[in-house]
């Protein structure tokens, strides 16, 4: 299974300010009515959003990508 380091959202700390959205170099983050959504396919794990977050609501984590099913 392929592994990848990505930004992970910690909802309980989030104040929904949108800073992470604006600094994401690959526009992988969106602030929706459900909170922060991170596109793990796009995320490069650069960590800019993690450092910028005023309240520490993002962390870098290694995740296991699900194998893509053949159509």
């Amino acid at each position: 299974m392929p592994e990848k380091t990505v930004a992970v959202w910690i909802g309980e700390r989030c104040i929904q300010c949108g800073l992470c959205v604006g600094v994401c170099p690959v526009a992988a983050i969106r602030l929706t009515e459900r909170g922060i959504e991170i596109d793990v396919e796009k995320c490069t794990g650069c960590g800019i959003c993690v450092k910028g977050c005023p309240v520490g609501a993002l962390q870098l984590k290694k995740i296991v990508l699900e194998a893509k099913r053949d159509a």
């Binding site: 949108g18 604006g22 600094v23 526009a27």
Partner: peptide, 17 residues
């Protein structure tokens, strides 16, 4: 600050850290 609309349209408005 999020500035996603211009970026979607193809203008570079990314906010450098």
């Amino acid at each position: 600050f999020e500035s996603l609309i211009a970026r979607k349209a193809g203008l570079q408005t990314l906010q450098a850290a």
